[in-house]
């Protein structure tokens, strides 16, 4: 029973830790499936986290905060689009620039506006997305196993968590069952085919990076308004890059992306849980446990994914031939 309890707790925090990864990963999926590589997920997420927390603190409304987070993140996505689609710039350089801009400007603006060392003021309950109790969760709590899973694992998360997981089937549906998805996948594989079919390559790619912006904005807001009560500098702490790794691990497929993010979330949750706990009688240094998810990321990416074929036109600006 003790073990089961511990497991449910770890899985519960796995879900919490996976959400920002999953949102960022799906965000990257839209952009990269359309042929625009985006290593600026991290920066957009950070900017979204800041804008969300700042907006919520100023307006007092979580929803307005979320809107601010999305708008700022979409704005940065459009900068990336302008550089890499309209001006055919190098997508990696543009993405790196966005990461730097976000890292620097969030601290400067935070200090200028709130004078709390780059933090935003702590958010109250109305300014955050609180956990939602699903119907019947309290009643079922005492039913062994099923009740516990339902009330602890499935119920009791924020709206954004449910949104993130619903985005997985939705993204799948968009990609494989809609006209937009067909064109999106086509433009990442062979933009010339899309162009000759009479569809604008640039507009299609812009729509894809806007989708990316929306989702990274929400991912950021989750960090600052759900997981924490306010913005702290560099609070993304590399999650955007882990999401990118998960995207490759998932071979750019939405359902795989969910499992990849859950796996990374689980590693993270396990490493937190196991800190200070002796494993088979040996005390493992905290730092090693903290590094474990990243070490495993490298191992998984290097050894276990087999051949991941990225979208064929990925990273290449579209120039009409001849």
């Amino acid at each position: 029973m003790d073990f089961l309890n511990a497991l449910v707790l770890i899985l519960d925090s796995t879900i919490r830790l996976s959400v920002p990864l999953l949102l960022a990963c799906l965000a990257g999926l839209y952009s990269e499936r359309a042929g625009v590589f985006d290593i600026g997920l991290e920066g957009k997420m950070l900017a979204g986290a800041f804008a969300g927390a700042a907006g919520a603190a100023v307006t007092g409304s979580a929803w307005l905060g979320l809107l601010c987070g999305i708008l700022v993140s979409v704005g940065m996505a459009l900068v990336h689009g302008f550089a890499s689609i309209t001006h055919r710039g190098n997508q990696i350089v543009s993405g790196v620039a966005i990461n730097f801009i976000a890292a620097g400007s969030t601290i400067i603006l935070g200090q200028a506006w709130f004078q709390q060392g780059g933090r935003t003021p702590a958010l109250g309950a109305a300014q955050r997305f609180e956990a939602i109790e699903l119907p019947g969760a309290a009643a079922l709590r005492d039913v062994p196993l099923i009740g516990q899973i339902y009330s602890e694992l499935i119920s009791g998360h924020s709206l954004l968590t449910y949104f993130a997981f619903l985005m997985v089937p939705f993204t799948w549906w968009v990609l494989y069952r809609t006209r937009f998805g067909l064109r999106l996948r086509a433009v990442g594989e062979n933009p010339a085919a899309v162009d000759t079919a009479g569809v604008s390559v640039a507009w299609l790619r812009y729509r894809a990076v806007i989708c990316t912006g929306i989702l990274t904005g929400i991912a950021g807001c989750y960090l600052s308004m759900v997981q924490n009560a306010g913005f702290v500098k560099d609070m993304t702490a590399g999650k955007g890059f882990i999401a990118l790794a998960a995207l490759i691990f998932a071979k750019w497929k939405p359902v795989n992306a969910m499992f990849a993010c859950l796996l990374f979330g689980f590693l993270d949750a396990a490493s937190i849980r196991l800190q200070g706990t002796p494993i088979m009688g040996v005390r493992v240094p905290v730092q090693l446990m903290q590094a474990l998810p990243y070490i495993l990321t490298v191992i998984l990416l290097a050894g276990f994914i087999g051949k991941a074929i990225p979208p064929r036109a990925g990273g290449v600006p579209y120039v009409k031939e001849r």
Partner: peptide
């Protein structure tokens, strides 16, 4: 059908 799909849903 790419570019000549006709409607937003593919089915």
């Amino acid at each position: 059908i790419l570019g000549a799909e006709g409607e937003p849903l593919l089915n």
